[in-house]
Design a protein around this nucleic acid. Structure first.
Length: 321
DNA sequence: ATGGTTTTTACTGCGTC
DNA sequence: GACGCGGTAAAAACCAT
């Protein structure tokens, strides 16, 4: 049984169990495999045909198709809506070809009319400043996200955050780039794939200081609940940057876990903690990494690593006893 | 603005290869 | 002697009030 992580806007995570796949379910009568028949909204046994469940919710289409060509024809699913486009991909586009629905050329009178419609459609589509604003910001978010190797869902979340900021009129006085960057930063953290402020600032057009200011403001105004980043989420990245083994990764997580229970955590920078755990774990597994190596990939001073990793080992010891 | 906390910077001493 | 490591003090950055 697999767990899926569901992340909500506010960043809390809860776990939901996926609906049970029918493969390990057995028919109560003859212990044959159960097949869920979505077309008739039933779960039936493949051996004896016993209907185990009826009247399930049918998520299939309401039409029937008798061959694949017909299926294609009847299917009427468009592109999914996405928050990554300023109009969620829903606006109308007037085709550039001067053809009618049957592919015949239009009369010149019609052509002129279509040209006027195109012009106006375009004007309305990016009508007010907000829309144009959004367009630019989303482009920015996209650019930065790919520079940082952040997955699509992060971009999506960032877009949502930006949209909210826009709706609440938080923009005046702040730069589009600044807010866009903040949104991305927040989204990355919410998604559990945090990037440090430095990393974000490196690909953004705004200064670090402006970024932190805007970020704080946005978080406060939108009531985004962003928990302090979990040190563990940095571990895999550091491990792979340093070419360390899985074993080391596991130990690093263990160290962080016992540190958490010990409460050594609070107030300390999560990145520092992660870096220290990686270093300490490498010591334990006899893999060679210097404090300097770790400090470089983690962008953390060696001093911090030293201080943290001692604490980590200490708390790991007391936990073991 | 302020004060408390954490991180960084810079420097020093020790041991090892 | 260079390097990794540990320690310290003072400065800087950060955060809540």
């Amino acid at each position: 049984m697999t767990d899926t992580q569901i992340r909500t806007y506010s960043g809390e995570t809860r776990r939901e169990q996926e609906t049970e796949a029918s493969e390990d379910e057995q028919c109560p009568e003859c212990s044959g495999r159960l097949i869920s028949d979505t077309e008739h909204a039933e779960t039936v046994c493949s051996e004896c045909g016993l209907v185990v469940e009826e009247d399930e919710i049918d998520r299939g289409p309401e039409w029937r198709a008798f061959d694949s060509a017909e299926k294609d024809q009847k299917s009427r699913v468009g592109a999914p809506t996405t928050n990554m486009m300023h109009d969620q991909g829903l606006s109308t586009n007037i085709g550039w070809q001067d053809k009618d629905a049957y592919g015949r050329a239009l009369s010149s009178r019609q052509r002129q009319k279509m040209q006027r419609l195109r012009t106006w459609n375009e004007r309305f589509r990016t009508r007010d400043s907000k829309e144009r604003n959004l367009k630019q910001a989303l482009g920015e978010i996209d650019r930065m996200a790919s520079a940082l190797g952040l997955p699509e869902n992060v971009r999506e979340t960032a877009s949502v955050i930006y949209r909210r900021a826009l709706d609440e009129d938080l923009l005046p006085g702040r730069s589009i780039e600044g807010v866009a960057t903040s949104a991305l930063y927040a989204a990355a953290r919410q998604a559990g794939t945090p990037r440090s402020l430095d990393e974000i600032a490196a690909v953004s057009r705004v200064e670090r200081m402006e970024l932190t200011r805007t970020y704080r403001y946005i978080v406060r105004q939108l009531n985004l609940e962003i928990k302090p980043a979990d040190p563990e989420s940095y571990v895999p990245r550091f491990i792979s940057d340093l070419d360390l083994s899985d074993e080391t990764e596991r130990r690093a997580r263990d160290l962080l876990e016992s540190a958490r229970q010990d409460g050594v955590h609070s107030g300390k920078s999560p990145v520092g903690l992660a870096a220290a755990s990686v270093y300490a774990a490498a010591l334990l597994t006899n893999e060679k990494v210097t404090q300097n190596d770790v400090s470089e990939v983690a962008n953390i001073s060696e001093v911090t690593i030293r201080n943290r990793y001692k604490e980590l080992l200490e708390s790991a010891d007391t936990m073991a006893v």
